[in-house]
């Protein structure tokens, strides 16, 4: 009851900020989750999984509430469609982080110790790409002129992520002692992590267009 009253009182600006916080936090939690998994600390990993699932739920709730507000109050009619797509795209990034940790939980990949650093670096690049994307979004709402300052970082981290993925895949498939199925399993996880940065870049491309449309 109290929560719903508080929610109603929360302005849409605050809701959007909060929604973007969830995405940012989901990135950090996925990093914690992977670290715990690689260290075989399954208790910490389970905690990270619970936290990231809660974050995803909260993100979904916030997105729905924002979208309802946008339509019910007919806010920002000229940019409503763009903002809706942007929020859904950002929510998809949040889902990607959650999905990654879930896949670790379900498939339990056997990651050789020599690949640990590359996997960590790969995820770090994806998290940074999403982080830059979150900053771009905040700028889109508050200070449209500085969006470009953040978008170029998304592109940078995506490229870094591509480099690490290529390197990692070469290393995986260069190992003679591993079975092909194992190699393909590891490649799948590397691709899953890389895809987060790729998607962040796709969202940033669309955001660029929204910025042009809103430029006075």
């Amino acid at each position: 009851m109290t929560e719903s009253i508080l929610k109603k009182k929360m302005g849409i600006e605050k809701e959007i900020d909060d929604f973007l916080n969830q995405i940012s936090e989901a990135g950090l939690m996925s990093k914690n989750g992977m670290d715990a998994y690689l260290k075989k600390n399954m208790e910490a990993f389970a905690q990270a999984l619970t936290s990231i699932r809660n974050t995803e739920h909260r993100g979904d709730d916030l997105r729905r509430s924002i979208e309802q507000d946008l339509y019910k109050k007919t806010l920002i009619p000229e940019s409503r469609g763009d903002v809706m797509t942007l929020l859904e795209d950002m929510d998809a990034l949040l889902d990607r982080f959650t999905g990654l940790i879930w896949q670790f939980e379900i498939e339990r990949p056997d990651i050789c110790a020599e690949f640990h650093d590359d996997f960590k670096e790969l995820l770090l690049n994806s998290v940074e790409a999403v982080e830059a994307m979150v900053r771009s979004c905040r700028a889109f709402f508050k200070d449209i002129n500085s969006v470009a300052d953040h978008i170029h970082k998304v592109v940078f981290y995506e490229k870094e992520s591509d480099k690490v993925t290529t390197r990692l895949q070469r290393a995986i498939f260069g190992r003679e002692d591993l079975r092909l199925s194992h190699k393909m399993h590891l490649r799948f996880f590397a691709k899953q992590v890389d895809r987060i940065a790729d998607e962040a870049e796709d969202v940033s491309d669309r955001l660029n267009i929204y910025v042009i449309k809103r430029t006075l």
């Binding site: 302005g11 849409i12 600006e13 959007i16 806010l75 920002i76 940019s79 903002v83 889109f140 709402f141 508050k142 200070d143 449209i144 002129n145 006075l216």
Partner: peptide
């Protein structure tokens, strides 16, 4: 007016929803 107001909005960095 359009030039002036557009410049004012750019400088004031008003939140999209507040501007709305």
């Amino acid at each position: 007016f359009y030039k002036l107001i557009a410049h004012g909005i750019k400088s004031a960095q008003i939140h999209m929803f507040r501007l709305d």
